[in-house]
Design a protein around this nucleic acid. Structure first.
Length: 573
RNA sequence: GCGCGUGUAGCUCAGCUGGAUAGAGCGACAGCCUCCGGAGCUGUAGGUCGCAGGUUCGAAUCCUGCCACGCGUACCA
C-alpha cells in the first residue's frame, strides 16, 4: 500500500519519531466506521512528553497540509488520529486488481525457490479411516494449497502407518481367526477391525497374546516370509479403501512412502547416535536421555532390538532432508504426540543437524464422543465414509425439496455434502478439541460450508441472469459508477476484498486454514446482506454494470478461498 | 506429581503483533416471498472474557499464582 508508506513518512517527519515506530503503531480501527487507518498516540506521549490528544491534533494538521493523494479525511479524536481514504479510489484499485489477477488474487511469491515438506493424513493400515483422520488430511492438504499459493514448492507425503507392533498383533489374530472374517467383501478394513478388536478382547483374558504380537512383529521386521505376505495383503486391501476416501476428498500426495519404507534406513541413524555417545542402555532398551532438556527419554531400540516409532521418524526426517532439501518440514499430527515430536526434534538437534529447527509439529486437537474417546482397539470409531454418506444424503434431500430441477443433482450433492464436512473441520482453530455430534456436523445453516457455497451459487445466479438480460460486469474498474457502491453493505464488501490477501498470508504463515474459513464466512455474510438490500440487475446500465463487477469479484474470491480449502464451488445447488 | 494445551453469551466458536462501546452462528422469541434462488435477510433477549494479583496511560490479549477440563508421562503409534 503506497499511501500508507507516504503517511508514515509525513507523520514520522512531523512528529520527529522513527518511521518504523509509526509503522508498527498504525492500525486498522476495530470499529471501521471510524476510518481506514488509525494512529493511537498514547505510547508516543511517553516519548514526546506531550499529551496524546495534542500529538493527534498535530499529526492531523501535518497530514492535511501535505495533501496526500487518495485521502478523504483526517481527524483527531481524543488520543487517536483517524485517517480515511477516498472510498471511490480504493474501490477502483481493488476491483481492478481482482479483474487483473482473477483467481490468483491473493497469491504471492514469498515462497519462491523454497521447499516445504508436508506429512499429513498418514492413516494406519488395517485400521478404519475414521473421522479422526479427517483432521490431519484436510488441514494438511489445505495448508499445502495455501503454501503453494504463496509460491512454495510443496512435497506432500502420506506417511502410512504400515509398520509396528500392531501388525504383529493383527498377524496373530489373522492366523487364529482369519477364516471367520470376510476379507474379500466390500469393506475389508471392517473385517480387519473385527480381528483387531477380538485380539484385544481375548488379550485381556490371555496376556500372552501381547507377547505373541510383539514376537510376530519382530519376525516381520526380520523378513519372515509368512509374516511379510500376510502384511502385504493387509496393506493392499487397505490402500484400496483409503484411495476411495482420497478420491472423494480430492486429496493427493506426491508419495505414499510410509513407515515400512524406513525399515532399512534406521541403522545409520542408530550408528550416528552411538558415535556421538548419545545412545545409552537403560532397562534393556537403548535410549537417548533427554532429561537435561526437560523431556522424557526417547526409546530408540526395544529390549528385543525391534524398532520403534521414534526411530523411524528420525530416519524419515533425515531421509526427507537429504532427498528434498526442505526449508520447512511439517507434521500434521494430533496434540497427543506433542512430547514425541519434541523428543525427535531435540534428538536431531543433538545429532548436530542444523535443520532441526525447521521441523514443525503442526498440532491439532482431538475428536471425541460424548461417551468418551475414540478407540479402534475397542471398535469404537466412526468411519469417515459413513459421515460423508450421511452428509451427501442430507444434501440430496434438501435439494429435492428446494431445487428439484437441478441438473447434475448427484454430483452437486456430493460436492456440497463433502464440502460441508471439510469446512466444518477447517473452520475452527486447529488446536481446539471437538466432540463428534451428528446434529451439529449435519447442520447446514449459519456459519457453515454450504452457506459459503450457497452464496457463491447465488452470486453465480445473478451473473447468469444478468447475461440473460443483456447486462454484463464492467471490464474496467476505472469506469465504475461509484454511487452504485456508496452504501454500507457494498463498502463492507470492498474492505473484505482488500483484506483478502492478508487473510491468506496469515492462514499460510500460521498453518491455520480456519483463518481463511472465517474470512469466507464474513465475505459470504456481507454478500448476502448486500444483495438483499440492493438490487443488482437494475435499469441503469452503469449501476448494473458496477454492481455486477462487484458480484463477479466477490464470487471469484469465494471460489479461490473454497478452492484453497479443497472445497468445490458449484454454480447451482 | 511433573510437562504441554484449553477455559470468551445456554451451546459451538471469532477476537490479528495489548488500544476507543467484547463480535458471529446455533438455539429462543418477533418479523420479511407483487422484488436477482428463504441452505437467505431484519430485529429482540443473552457476557463478572475461569478466579486472584501484577505490568501498563490502557489487558479477553503480556507476567505470576490458583481452579477446572483434556492430552502426555519408557519399550504403542
Amino acid at each position: 500500500m503506497n499511501e500508507r508508506h507516504r503517511i508514515v513518512q509525513i507523520l514520522s517527519q512531523g512528529l520527529g519519531v522513527g518511521t518504523e515506530e509509526i509503522d508498527t503503531l498504525l492500525e486498522i480501527p476495530s470499529d471501521r466506521s471510524r476510518g481506514d487507518l488509525a494512529l493511537p498516540c498514547f505510547r508516543l506521549a511517553g516519548v514526546l512528553k506531550r499529551p496524546p490528544a495534542d500529538i493527534a491534533k498535530q499529526a492531523a494538521a501535518d497530514l492535511s497540509e501535505k495533501a496526500v493523494a487518495g485521502l478523504a479525511s483526517v481527524e483527531a479524536v481524543g488520543g487517536y488520529l483517524n485517517i480515511r481514504f477516498d472510498p471511490a479510489v480504493q474501490a477502483k484499485k481493488v476491483l481492478q486488481a481482482i479483474l487483473d489477477q482473477g483467481e490468483r488474487y491473493g497469491s504471492n511469491e514469498v515462497g519462491a525457490g523454497k521447499t516445504v515438506v508436508l506429512d499429513y493424513s498418514s492413516p494406519n493400515i488395517a485400521k478404519p479411516f475414521s473421522v479422526g483422520h479427517l483432521r490431519s488430511t484436510v488441514i494438511g492438504a489445505s495448508v499445502g494449497n495455501l503454501l503453494a499459493f504463496q509460491g512454495y514448492r510443496c512435497v506432500r507425503i502420506n506417511h502410512l502407518g504400515d509398520w509396528g507392533t500392531q501388525f504383529g498383533k493383527l498377524i496373530v489374530a489373522y492366523r487364529k481367526w482369519g477364516e471367520e472374517v470376510d476379507l474379500e467383501g466390500p469393506s475389508p478394513i471392517k473385517a480387519l477391525l473385527k480381528l483387531y478388536v477380538r485380539f484385544h478382547d481375548e488379550a485381556e483374558a490371555d496376556p500372552s497374546l501381547e507377547d505373541q504380537g510383539r514376537e510376530w512383529f519382530k519376525r516381520l521386521e526380520d523378513g519372515d516370509p509368512e509374516a511379510t505376505s500376510i502384511w502385504e495383503r493387509f496393506k493392499s486391501l487397505s490402500l484400496v479403501e483409503f484411495q476411495r476416501m482420497y478420491d472423494r476428498l480430492g486429496v493427493e500426495f506426491d508419495t505414499y512412502s510410509g513407515e515400512s519404507f524406513y525399515n532399512d534406513k534406521m541403522q545409520p541413524v542408530i550408528d550416528r547416535l552411538q558415535e556421538k555417545g548419545l545412545l545409552v542402555e537403560s532397562r534393556g532398551a537403548k535410549i537417548v536421555d533427554l532429561e537435561p532438556h526437560g523431556l522424557t527419554p526417547i526409546i530408540i531400540q526395544r529390549s528385543d532390538d525391534a524398532s520403534l516409532y521414534a526411530t523411524r521418524d528420525l530416519a524419515a526426517a533425515c531421509y526427507r532432508h537429504e532427498t528434498y532439501a526442505f526449508d520447512k518440514n511439517l507434521y500434521f499430527v494430533a496434540t497427543q504426540q506433542n512430547e514425541h515430536f519434541k523428543q525427535v526434534f531435540k534428538t536431531l538437534e543433538l545429532l548436530g543437524e542444523p535443520w532441526a529447527k525447521d521441523c514443525v509439529h503442526v498440532a491439532f486437537g482431538l475428536i471425541s464422543f460424548a461417551e468418551g474417546v475414540m478407540s479402534s482397539r475397542k471398535g469404537k470409531v466412526i468411519f469417515l465414509e459413513d459421515v460423508l454418506d450421511q452428509a451427501v444424503e442430507r444434501v440430496d434431500r434438501i435439494i429435492a425439496e428446494k431445487n428439484p430441477e437441478l441438473p447434475n443433482r448427484t454430483e452437486v450433492a456430493e460436492q456440497v455434502g463433502v464440502g460441508a464436512i471439510r469446512f466444518y473441520d477447517l473452520s475452527r482453530r486447529r488446536i481446539k478439541d471437538w466432540v463428534f455430534d451428528w446434529a451439529r456436523i449435519l447442520n447446514f445453516d449459519g456459519d457453515t460450508g454450504p452457506y459459503v457455497m450457497y452464496t457463491h451459487a447465488r452470486l453465480s445466479s445473478i451473473l447468469r441472469k444478468g447475461v440473460e438480460r443483456g447486462m454484463s460486469p464492467l471490464r474496467e474498474a476505472a469506469s465504475i459508477e461509484f454511487s452504485a457502491l456508496d452504501n454500507p453493505e457494498a463498502i463492507e464488501i470492498l474492505k473484505d476484498l482488500e483484506n483478502f490477501p492478508r487473510a491468506i498470508s496469515r492462514a499460510a504463515e500460521e498453518y491455520e486454514p480456519s483463518i481463511l474459513a472465517q474470512t469466507l464466512v464474513d465475505i459470504a455474510d456481507h454478500a448476502n446482506r448486500f444483495y438483499n438490500a440492493h438490487h443488482v440487475l437494475v435499469e441503469q446500465p452503469s449501476v448494473a454494470g458496477t454492481r455486477l463487477l462487484l458480484v463477479a469479484c466477490v464470487r471469484t474470491l469465494l471460489r479461490t478461498g473454497l478452492g484453497l480449502l479443497g472445497i468445490a464451488a458449484p454454480e447451482e445447488m
